[in-house]
Write a protein that binds this DNA or RNA. Structure first.
Lengths: 228, 228
DNA sequence: CTCGGAATAATTTGATCATATTCTACGCCG
DNA sequence: CGGCGTAGAATATGATCAAATTATTCCGAG
């Protein structure tokens, strides 16, 4: 039957080893997203070949892909680097995040189940723990996971893709923010958001999300001001 | 002096031959954007190697880049194809285009010079000629050029980049629209837009742009409805 | 004699290609 | 109808070529 072959395929897919360029892409993506690479850092092919123990071709493809997504910047001469945000770019990002992520929150709020909210709660608990321990990497990953888990419920792949791209753009700067302010007073409107979700208050949820976005953007802006 | 060496460099840059992967990228991009490739068409590496007379590596990179931009779709098995839009995706695109392109129009309207408006006028004239002649390719390129020339004045690189990605997503479907309706009654709120720009009426300009977006989206939706 | 600057040499890195390997899909045979 | 083998395309590697930045050296001026 079709069902059997489908199951066989699914099993095969889960067992399938993902292609190298995919693996390298995700590794490099996380490096950018969680601030392992600082703004302005040079990204060389051969450096990544050694760092990740991969071949040249997969590394090349991963870099191209991340350039297309705005996570890396092609400097005209053949050099590639992690972009440094300008004020103007940051305000563009703020505008886009406010419209897109509030839309994602609105749609997600209408679709979340109790199990979803419990998942989000668990992530938020881990996030709090990371803040207490001063675990910057943990904070960044949990925060990202919290937002993306919620947005995944919005059932809007294109909006989600754009949102992911925006996060890639300010990821490196966010790491700098943590280094500057410490993990104590970082934006966390998650409690407010969770209670809004539990009471199915869509408006309150989107308001909380916008607050979270603005707060995060402001902190990055402050660091930019100091650096300049 | 520094000035002299800089000028020499600039001259060298203008003469510089662009790398092959860049050339292939733009060729393939135009193929998608102007509907040379229909939705659902398979995109093979070797097919492009022959069609464009390029090497494998540049073609690979161009394809990856366009996949990252949403212009092509990776089908899980190693196949790549031109995506077919769904209704849900189309409505996401409409939402994003309305917010982003109206924002771009607003910013551009505050910055355009008379020379810019004259440029836009010229493009619009060429567009009208293409419509009269039933020149689909000419219509598509002029229409794209009209919008992007305006948006370039907005001085907002990130917004512009997202807008370009969205155009890549519905480019193939737009070609189908032309094949279905002919070029006669295609969306063209450009006259209204131009007069608004001339009188520096920002609100009227953004209203005209939103109308243009909605009209285009509706026609695609109609074709999708018929195809399904 | 020392210092600054420009031209050039050397090293590093990116771009491209030819080739081997692996995986998918299709067709054939049991 | 299902499993196996083959064909063909995509993936990945390493070598080779080209470009750019860096380092060095040489010359002239102070």
């Amino acid at each position: 039957m079709n069902v059997i072959s489908r199951t066989a395929d699914a099993q095969k897919d889960s067992t399938a080893n993902p292609p190298a360029h995919e693996v390298v892409y995700h590794q490099l993506r996380d490096l950018v997203l969680f601030g392992e690479l600082a703004p302005g850092d040079a990204v060389t092919i051969q450096g990544l070949v050694q760092r990740l123990g991969a071949g040249m071709t997969p590394v090349r493809e991963a870099i191209r892909r991340l350039i297309a997504e705005g996570a890396l910047r092609f400097q005209g001469n053949r050099r590639v680097s992690v972009p440094t945000l300008t004020f103007d770019e940051l305000s563009e990002i703020e505008f886009l995040r406010k419209t897109i992520e509030s839309q994602l929150t609105e749609r997600a709020a209408q679709r979340v189940t109790n199990a979803d909210i419990d998942d989000l709660s668990r992530i938020d608990t881990a996030l709090d723990a990371a803040i207490l321990n001063g675990d910057v990497r943990g904070y960044l990953t949990c925060n990202y996971q919290f937002h993306m888990t919620l947005y995944a419920r919005a059932d809007a792949p294109i909006l989600l893709g754009v949102a992911e791209q925006l996060w890639l753009r300010f990821g490196p700067s966010l790491r700098v923010v943590c280094g500057r302010f410490g993990t104590e007073n970082l934006p966390d409107q998650h409690k407010e958001l969770l209670t809004a979700l539990r009471s199915a208050d869509t408006d309150a949820a989107t308001r909380a999300m916008v607050k979270d976005v603005v707060q995060g953007t402001d902190q990055i802006a402050q660091v930019l001001r100091e650096t300049a």
